Amino acid sequence: MGVSDLPIVIHFWARWCNVSKTMLPHFSTGARKLAGRALFAKVETDKEASLAQRYGIECVPTLVVFRSGQEIVRHCGAMTAGQLGLWLQPHLQKST
C-alpha cells in the first residue's frame, strides 16, 4: 500500500475566523494521532483563494476528505480532535 492510497484530509481555514483558528491545534492533534492512516493538509483560504473557489468552500472551517482525487465527504464547522477521529473513522485506512 503506497502513500497515494491514503485518504487526504484538507482543513480549509481563514486567519480572520476565530473558530477556524481555534480548530488548528485540534486538527494538528488529530493528524498526529492518525498519522499513517491519512494525509493531512491545511489550506488558508485567503492565501489560496483559487483553490478554495475550485472546491466551492463556502464556510470556514471546512474539512474535505479526498480519496484517489475524488471528494468523498466534507464537513463545515469546527471539531475537536476526538470528533475529527470519529468523523474520519469510516474513511481511514485500517491500521495494520
Rank of each mutant, 00 (worst) to 15 (best):
G85C: 13
K21L: 03
E58R: 15
K47L: 09
T45E: 04
A81M: 06
G82T: 12
L84A: 09
G82F: 04
V73G: 10
Q53M: 13
K47P: 01
V64P: 09
A14L: 02
V19F: 05
R54S: 12
E71L: 07
A52S: 13
G36Q: 11
A52M: 09
K94R: 15
I57R: 10
F40P: 04
R32V: 06
R67G: 07
K21Q: 10
C76T: 12
H75I: 02
M79G: 04
G69T: 12
A38E: 03
S95W: 12
P90M: 07
L92Y: 06
A31M: 11
S68M: 06
K47Q: 15
V19W: 03
S20H: 04
M79D: 02
K47A: 14
C76N: 13
D5T: 14
W87E: 03
V60G: 05
T80F: 00
V73E: 14
E44S: 01
F40C: 03
G30Y: 02
L39P: 01
V60N: 05
Q53N: 06
V3T: 01
E71D: 03
H75S: 05
K21P: 00
K47R: 09
G30R: 02
T62Y: 10
G69P: 08
G69E: 11
G85L: 08
L34F: 06
L86R: 14
Q53A: 10
N18W: 13
L6G: 13
S68R: 13
I8L: 15
Q83F: 00
C76E: 15
W87Q: 02
G30E: 06
C59T: 15
I10Q: 13
P61V: 11
Q93Y: 13
K33E: 14
W16M: 11
E44W: 08
K42V: 01
E58S: 11
A78G: 10
R32T: 05
P25M: 11
G82N: 11
H26Y: 01
G30C: 15
V65T: 05
L84T: 08
R15A: 09
R67Y: 02
R37S: 14
K33F: 03
R37I: 01
G85Y: 07
C17Y: 08
P61G: 09
A49P: 00
N18D: 12
L86G: 06
W87A: 04
E44D: 08
L6F: 13
F27R: 07
K33G: 13
C17P: 13
T80N: 00
A35H: 10
Q70I: 00
G2M: 06
E71I: 01
Q83D: 07
P90L: 07
T22A: 15
A78H: 07
W13Q: 06
